[in-house]
């Protein structure tokens, strides 16, 4: 049993970057197609990452390396914790730890771009964290336990009873993956006024590590969504990919908004939708 779990964790650590990278490649290809372009090859994210690792190590200060390393470690850890079916609340805080580490890395450099990016990333954290915690609470109310593995004992998939949380999850994904209209702290493309925001001062291998952390994060988020349809692996995967597709579409049809707008939408609409779902489930049907 113990050996099995370790193997599972190792498999997650090994394969998640491959899956995440491939999905990112598909994302870029899809985005290009939506813009009537041919787009880069599917392998492009891997080329980029290998190239970044082969570049010279330039830093601004030493803390950057620590921040990137902690960011990567906590993203990988949160995925491992999810795969092992650990406590979901702990998992969210591990995720937050990673974000805080990256934010501090951005703050540690006295550069206008990276600092403004970090300030905005803090606001992004403020926007999506309540939604994620509410989601975990909703799962708890359904299963009576905070552990991810308890979802597996449910007979019905969560999506039947918690459909609105898929909507809030799309919001969370848009913010976490820095997609429009929530790409306010830095995005995968350069911005006019912010360059690359929080990522501006990370270069070469550090940037490569950040890319890999992003892939872990992507797989983690998709895995989290797949929990909502645990009874059928295929349905779960399709649900997750469907959400990802929705995020990509929204990315391509919207422009970047301000942080005030983001907070308004996530707090009023996102928290509202979560509460509405919980209310419909427990307020009317009775517990």
């Amino acid at each position: 049993m113990e050996v099995e779990r370790i193997l599972l964790a190792l498999a997650a650590l090994l394969f998640a970057p491959i899956v995440g990278g491939a999905l990112t490649g598909a994302d870029r290809k899809l985005t290009a197609r939506m813009q009537k372009r041919i787009g880069p090859p599917l392998m492009q994210p891997f080329y980029d990452a290998v190239k970044l690792f082969s570049k010279q190590r330039l830093i601004v200060n030493g803390f950057q390396s620590v921040s990137v390393s902690v960011y990567l470690a906590s993203m990988a850890l949160s995925l491992v914790l999810l795969v092992l079916g650990m406590d979901l609340l702990v998992l969210l805080f591990v995720l937050a730890l990673g974000s805080v580490a990256l934010i501090l890395g951005g703050f540690s450099v006295k550069s206008p771009y990276s600092q403004i990016g970090s300030q905005r990333e803090v606001l992004q954290l403020l926007a999506y964290e309540p939604l994620l915690v509410l989601m975990v609470v909703a799962i708890y109310l359904k299963t009576g336990s905070f552990s991810a593995s308890s979802v597996m004992s449910l007979r019905q998939p969560l999506i039947y009873s918690l459909p609105l949380f898929i909507v809030t999850m799309i919001l969370v994904m848009a913010i976490k993956l820095h997609k429009s209209p929530m790409d306010i702290s830095g995005s995968h493309h350069a911005h006019q006024e912010l360059v690359r925001g929080i990522y501006t001062e990370f270069s070469g291998p550090q940037m490569g590590l950040i890319e890999i952390a992003h892939w872990y994060e992507l797989v983690f988020l998709l895995g989290f969504i797949a929990l909502f349809w645990h009874t059928n692996l295929l349905c779960g995967a399709l649900l997750a990919l469907g959400c990802y597709f929705a995020v990509i579409v929204i990315d391509n049809i919207t422009a970047r908004m301000t942080w005030r707008w983001m907070l308004r939408v996530t707090w009023l609409f996102g928290i509202g939708a979560s509460l509405l779902n919980l209310f419909l489930l427990y307020g009317i049907a009775g517990r």
């Binding site: 290009a32 041919i38 880069p40 980029d48």
Partner: peptide, 11 residues
């Protein structure tokens, strides 16, 4: 579409 060659303007 230079992105098909992997070229990105990172600024």
């Amino acid at each position: 579409d230079v992105e098909r060659f992997g070229i990105i303007n990172v600024g």
